[in-house]
């Protein structure tokens, strides 16, 4: 296990079906500790499903998927173990609307990590500071802008002190002027050494932080490359077409 190259997440021949429709086809992918992976591809290509499999929001059918050696086949305990190490940020934020910002942040630490209230509060304030909105602690989510809400959602995940962060199109539901404030937080997180897997169409962000680009289409991984190669000399036709479309503007 001491080997640095040991992957923290390993997909080996993962398959997934929604009924008879195959959403993931023979997915194999390794992510090592501290690596930043950006997944892109046309909508319906299975990107979200792929990362949702990691923390068990979706169950895969074939192949194996392990997080730090724990697999989903290890039953309920295995899944609990995995989701305690993996944080997730959603396109729609999914903050708890009936709780204030600080209560949103403290819920996981007090209930799941069993931290005393005071400690949880300090932790929450520290992460609010980190996403640069400590002054919003006592407001309700609906009183915040979209960008602020998404930053709260990031802080809420970080309060669980995960080893891996998953981002499922975190800026897709935001007004253009709020995208950057969220990306800034994500860049900072990447620079701090967090292992991150991001599904996003923000190619500027990808260029800046990604160690590895993954292109998906029709449930398959079509291309895996470092950003340099990926953007300048994409191999497959499908990837070239996709990049041309989104980089046109």
């Amino acid at each position: 296990m001491g080997d640095v190259a040991e992957p923290i997440i390993r997909f080996a021949g993962v398959e997934k079906f929604f009924g008879s429709f195959q959403v993931l086809k023979n997915i194999s992918l390794d992510v090592s500790l501290g690596e930043r992976v950006v997944i892109c591809g046309p909508s319906g290509s299975g990107k979200s499903t792929l990362i949702r499999c990691i923390n068990g929001l979706e169950q895969h059918q074939g192949g194996t998927l392990s997080v730090e050696g724990v697999t989903h086949e290890d039953g309920r305990k295995g899944l609990d173990e995995i989701r305690s190490r993996v944080g997730m940020v959603f396109q729609q934020f999914n903050l708890f609307p009936h709780l204030t910002v600080i209560e949103n942040l403290m819920l996981g630490p007090t209930r799941a990590r069993k931290l005393p209230k005071e400690e949880a509060r300090e932790l929450a304030l520290r992460y609010l500071e980190r996403v640069r909105i400590p002054e919003q602690a006592d407001k309700y989510p609906r009183q915040l802008s979209g960008g602020q809400q998404q930053r709260v959602a990031i802080a809420r995940s970080l309060c669980m002190e995960p080893k891996i962060m998953l981002f499922d199109e975190p800026t897709s539901a935001l007004d253009p002027e709020m995208i950057n404030e969220v990306l800034d937080v994500m860049v900072e997180l990447a620079e701090s050494g967090m292992t991150m897997i991001c599904v996003t169409h923000e190619m500027g962000f990808a260029r800046r932080v990604a160690d590895k680009m993954v292109f998906m289409d029709h449930g398959e991984i079509v291309e895996v490359a470092d950003p340099e190669t990926f953007f300048n000399t994409p191999k497959s036709q499908r990837c070239q077409d996709f990049l041309q479309q989104i980089l046109q503007h």
Binding site: N55, R83, S84, G87, M88, F90, N94, L95
Partner: peptide
């Protein structure tokens, strides 16, 4: 999404 968020912060 509320269930998913709760799941992602390890709530029982």
């Amino acid at each position: 999404g509320q269930y998913e968020a709760a799941h992602s912060i390890s709530l029982s």
